[in-house]
């Protein structure tokens, strides 16, 4: 995410982006197979520590970024809490049926969504897209034509947002905003945005092909991205956090449920 916020560059910023992406993906899949809410709560604390201590952003911005995550937490948890299956009834009113099992399952889902959001936030705050795609080309052998297309695409985001504004203003001036349903509204924005984008993409692609951006053999890179000691630190931190979360959940459980299924 490119933001005009001053941040310190910490060791988290210097990790190899491909490695970071792979570790995050493994964590994502790993968390899907954790059914003990105690472990998830410990993991949440571990990743919150990583974010607040090592992401290098001012506290108030971090809190601001975390705000929408609370919505996610609540909205993910609430439908399971209200409508989930379970034996020990706590409360029943019409269709709403809150049980002990569904309550903790809902809570578990909330924490899970929160962890996914945290991991994503840590990744996008500490990784520059340019380095990510250069690293994907060098370490994971992503074809340059894909990587450079993505990079070109990312550069177009501000232009698209500007165009979106222009269309919005144009529609406002013409009084076109009233009396239209959602689909008509989306179409009104999507057609000019898409057609302009396609035209622009064609022009850029011709220029890029002429400059051999799609060439794969004997390629050199402006940014050479490798590995460093920070990658080891990161890997150790993740392993320690994971093992500690599991260990602590067995000796100091917060809630007496070990499997929410």
């Amino acid at each position: 995410m490119r933001l005009d916020i001053n941040y310190r560059e910490t060791w988290l910023h210097r990790i190899n982006p491909s490695l970071k992406l792979i570790v995050m993906t493994i964590l994502f899949i790993g968390v899907l197979f954790i059914h003990n809410p105690n472990v998830l709560m410990n993991l949440t604390l571990g990743f919150l520590l990583l974010l607040f201590a090592f992401a290098g952003y001012p506290l108030k911005y971090l809190l601001l970024f975390l705000l929408p995550f609370l919505f996610i937490f609540v909205s993910t948890a609430v439908s399971m809490i209200l409508f989930g299956n379970g034996q020990t009834t706590w409360f029943q009113w019409g269709l709403i049926h809150i049980t002990e099992e569904s309550f903790f399952r809902g809570l578990h889902l909330g924490f899970r969504a929160f962890i996914f959001a945290l991991l994503g936030l840590i990744f996008s705050l500490t990784t520059r897209p340019v380095y990510l795609f250069y690293s994907l080309m060098q370490q994971l052998k992503l074809k340059p034509k894909y990587a450079y297309s993505f990079l070109a695409g990312i550069r177009l985001i501000p232009i698209m947002l500007e165009e979106f504004q222009t269309v919005q203003n144009a529609l406002k001036v013409r009084g076109a905003a009233e009396k239209s349903n959602v689909f008509q509204k989306i179409k009104r924005y999507a057609i000019p945005l898409l057609s302009q984008s396609i035209r622009r993409a064609q022009r850029i692609a011709i220029a890029m092909e002429a400059k051999r951006f799609s060439q794969t053999v004997s390629r050199t890179f402006y940014y050479e991205i490798g590995f460093s000691k920070y990658d080891v630190v990161f890997a150790i931190y993740i392993v320690v956090i994971s093992l500690l979360s599991y260990y602590l959940s067995t000796i100091y459980p917060y809630i007496p449920i070990t499997d929410v299924r």
Binding site: K145, A152, L156, S197, I206, M208, S214
Partner: peptide
Amino acid sequence: KLADILTTVVISIVFGIVYKLWGPFYY
């Protein structure tokens, strides 16, 4: 070809913006 990929990516980024705006609407 690069032209196909770039066009696809650019179209998708338009929808990426829509996807992002869709999130708050959804929750």
